[in-house]
Design a protein around this nucleic acid. Sequence first.
DNA 1: CTGAAAGCGCTTACAG
DNA 2: CTGAAAGCGCTTACAG
Lengths: 343, 343
Amino acid sequence: MSRQATIKDVAREAGVSTFTVSKALRNQPHVAPETRKRVLRAAARLNYSASKSAAALVSGKTKRVALLIGEQITGWFNGNIQEGVYDVLSTHGYDLLIYRAGTSEERAAFFRNLPAKRNADAIIVVSFTLAQKETKALQELDMPIVAIHSGATSFSQGSIRIDDCESEIEAVQHLASLGHTRFCFLDRFNPLPEYSWGANQRIIGYKKAIDRYHLVDCGVLTMDPDREHPARTAADRIASMTPAPTAICAWSDDCALALLSELRQAEIRVPDVVSIMGFDSSDVAALAGLSSVAQPARDIGAEAARKALQLINGSPLTEPHTQVKTHIIDRATTGPAPRDEGR
Amino acid sequence: MSRQATIKDVAREAGVSTFTVSKALRNQPHVAPETRKRVLRAAARLNYSASKSAAALVSGKTKRVALLIGEQITGWFNGNIQEGVYDVLSTHGYDLLIYRAGTSEERAAFFRNLPAKRNADAIIVVSFTLAQKETKALQELDMPIVAIHSGATSFSQGSIRIDDCESEIEAVQHLASLGHTRFCFLDRFNPLPEYSWGANQRIIGYKKAIDRYHLVDCGVLTMDPDREHPARTAADRIASMTPAPTAICAWSDDCALALLSELRQAEIRVPDVVSIMGFDSSDVAALAGLSSVAQPARDIGAEAARKALQLINGSPLTEPHTQVKTHIIDRATTGPAPRDEGR
DNA sequence: CTGAAAGCGCTTACAG
DNA sequence: CTGAAAGCGCTTACAG
């Protein structure tokens, strides 16, 4: 393969100056339609596409947005955030750069090297609570910051999130309205307490609701992924709880689903004996008929990207900090509390 | 915030030339230890980090690798591929750029605009079967191509994959060795046939195994995510199959898990009456105790990135096209075939 | 509406 | 071991 065509080649081919080529290709005004057409044809003929590096160097705009992910890239939430961010970036000609700050070493390395520096026009931070000096480091990036699901939002020019606490309260309230009084919370299975971005707000909401509506908390469970068959252990514990819960609120759909099949295996019928409510309303939840608190992760990602783009263009955000509503979807794992309450 | 420091600022601060700064900061030889130290200190003091754009422009190396994802970014497989790719890129100072070619419009746009052009040093293509002219377009990128799970591999300089067909054969064989003779296959729920990257190889393997070992295929099921409660419908269909299958092979863990809880709800005990085998061995599978065909997605991603890096450095690949083994993990959803075979 | 020139911030031969 | 100069491929004032 020969070398890539440059703007000069196109200029020569079209018989104009590089200035005109640059203007024409970026759809800028003040180019004669005829000239523009000639340039476009020449560019197509030479298979030309501009070097982003060169453009970035002179314009100071990289046409890239960085997504900094706490914890891990994988998973329903972060995955859908990525989809949403990509949805809007791609339609605006921006590229998506991924950074992960999972383990503490990785995290330290990110803030030490700051690889995003001068390498993107904005950064979106997701599922991340920043330490004091990390905030400072981020500011050094000298680019707009948008936060998704971040504890504090003071360091960002824009943010978007759901209210985890309130959402969980609503879930409990909903189940209480179905007659449930004895509850149990199934916590996330891979807690990284040091990095928590408000993930614990769900359980806080749960406990608040228990108090507020005078319900009974039968206990909080965690599944340990390093043990053999964690879901069965959890199901066994639930079976032996006294009093026995009739409603289970899970931290996520994945937790809920794993438990669900074990409850049924143990012949604790769902929703006849126990109701179970997931969180997220992921694809699998819909497939499996799992009731769940739905959060619009993809929309959240898209909105974050929109904010980033606005910030890049220097327009002030009409609503810098957005809170998104969740809603409860009743599928086949929630129902009225069983009659024989005194089980 | 004032403008970012440039290499000139550092040179002035350290009292050397920009040449020396450049050398020193990139850990290149032929710089006196004393000089290097002085440069590093000056850079730290000014909070300097080199502009990748400028470096890319002159060196021709962007220090970025693009990941082109077929279908969607979300999901266990693509997510873990991303983690693996990131694992090795980040330790080598490379950035990760994401491109998605999901819908056909998006796909067309990608190959029309070729946003990765001159924007990365290599491209990794995942879960993607390319049309003739797409292959040509990709070649125009003029950078090394590494394919993950791609049907044809002729367009790539390196590739890595599992053998979906063989893996499924082994799954069936394993269940047959447990005494099962009547099988059923639960297909993926979001098939995009036009883009299939060999995803259908699993079902082909299933059918091959049925033939080879003289087993009975009781049918192939698909869950339609657009219908109400797809898993229950699938469970009902299985319950009414004659002859009734005693072993179910699922396209993925997610499918399997959704079905599992419904089977148990319908009092079709697993594994007592029916065994079910997932595919992937995802986190949730381990949690839920789902038996599964394990594929090392993260390792595959890492290896693909390693190949890309080698190719970038111009070293020939010792093993350009790698095939990775899967292995079966028996958890709590597979067991011996039930005695009363004539159910 | 179009052009010639300067310059973005680096790296890379070429010298010494 | 270090420096002065050229140049990567664009965009951006400045002219006309």
